[in-house]
Design a protein around this nucleic acid. Structure first.
Lengths: 144, 144
DNA sequence: TTGCGTGCAAAGGTTTTGCATGGCA
DNA sequence: TGCCATGCAAAACCTTTGCACGCAA
C-alpha cells in the first residue's frame, strides 16, 4: 500500500535508525531538513499515519505538551518487545524500561485481572533517580 | 490553596456530580453555560490545572483528537496512593487494583531503577476483561 | 496515462498567555 | 489593602485539509 517515494524512504531511514526510540514530528522534520532531504510537515504526518496503520510505527500521546511521539518497531520487536515508559514529573524526561521483572507485569495483569495492558498508551509517572535526590516528592508546576 | 470563588464552585459542582466519569474541557464549558453559570475557558483550564496538582482531579490524554479528559476523584478514592489504576480504553471504566504482586512494582522501580512512582498520576491503559472478550484492540482512526 | 503523493498555505482545534479588572481574605 | 482569580482576546501549538502540481506504476 502506497507508492515508494523518496520522501517515504527518507522518513523510514530516520525512523529505522532510531528504532525503539521516540521521535516527535517536529524532530523528524528538523532532522530531514538537516540531512538536506527536507520533507513537508504534512507529508510527514500523512506518512506516519500510514505507518501506524500498518503497524510499523507506534504512536504515543504522552501528554498534550509536546505533541505525539512516534516509535519505529523493527520486525523482530514488533510482537514481543514490550517495555514500560517512565516519565519524570520533575524534569519531564522519558525513560524506556525493559527488564524481565517489569515484563512479568503484563502477564500478571492478564492472568489475575483479565486486563490487557496497552504499552502504547501507558506511562508510569513519578520522580526519576536524579531528580529524586534533591526533591521531596513535591509536584511542581512552576519551573515551566 | 487558591481562593474560594464561585467559578471554582461551579466547576467543582459539575465535576463532583460526574465523579468517576471523564469530562472534556469543552463539555465542561458547555455545561457551565447551560446551567446559567458560564465560566471562561481560560479559567476552566487554570482551575483544572490546580485540581490536577492537588490530586482531586486526574487528567487523561487518550488521544490528541478531542482534547484531554478530566476525572474527579472523590475523597474515598483520593487516598488510593498505594494501588494502581487501570483504565479501559474501550469502555472508559477505571479499575482500582491493589494486590501484593503489583505493590512490589513500586519497590522494584525504586530499587532497580531509582524511580519513585506516583500512583496518583499513573494510569495503566489497556482493555479490561469484559471488553477484551469481544474486541481485538485494533487502532482505528476512521471513527472520528 | 492514471491517480496517489507531495508541498504549501490555510484552516481547525485545543491550550496557553498577557493584561486590565474584579473579588476573596 | 494586597493578591490572586477571572475574562477576553490574541497567541502559540499541533495537526489536518484543500488544491495544484509532480511522480510512481
Amino acid at each position: 500500500m502506497g507508492y515508494r517515494t523518496k520522501q517515504r524512504e527518507y522518513i523510514l531511514s530516520i525512523l529505522r535508525q532510531q528504532a525503539g526510540q521516540h521521535v516527535t514530528v517536529a524532530a523528524l522534520v528538523r532532522e530531514l531538513q538537516d540531512r538536506g532531504t527536507p520533507v513537508g510537515t504534512a507529508t510527514v504526518y500523512r506518512t506516519l499515519e500510514q505507518l501506524v496503520e500498518e503497524g510499523s510505527v507506534r504512536k504515543y500521546v504522552l501528554d498534550g505538551k509536546c505533541g505525539a511521539c512516534y516509535q519505529y518497531m523493527d520486525v523482530s520487536e514488533k510482537s514481543c518487545q514490550e517495555h514500560f515508559h517512565l516519565k519524570c514529573t520533575e524534569c519531564g524526561k522519558l525513560f524506556h524500561v525493559s527488564c524481565a521483572y517489569l515484563n512479568q507485569i503484563g502477564a500478571h495483569l492478564l492472568e489475575s485481572h483479565g486486563f490487557v495492558i496497552d504499552h502504547t498508551k501507558t506511562v508510569l509517572y513519578g520522580v526519576c533517580a536524579s531528580c529524586g535526590k534533591t526533591t521531596v516528592q513535591q509536584p511542581s508546576k512552576k519551573e515551566k
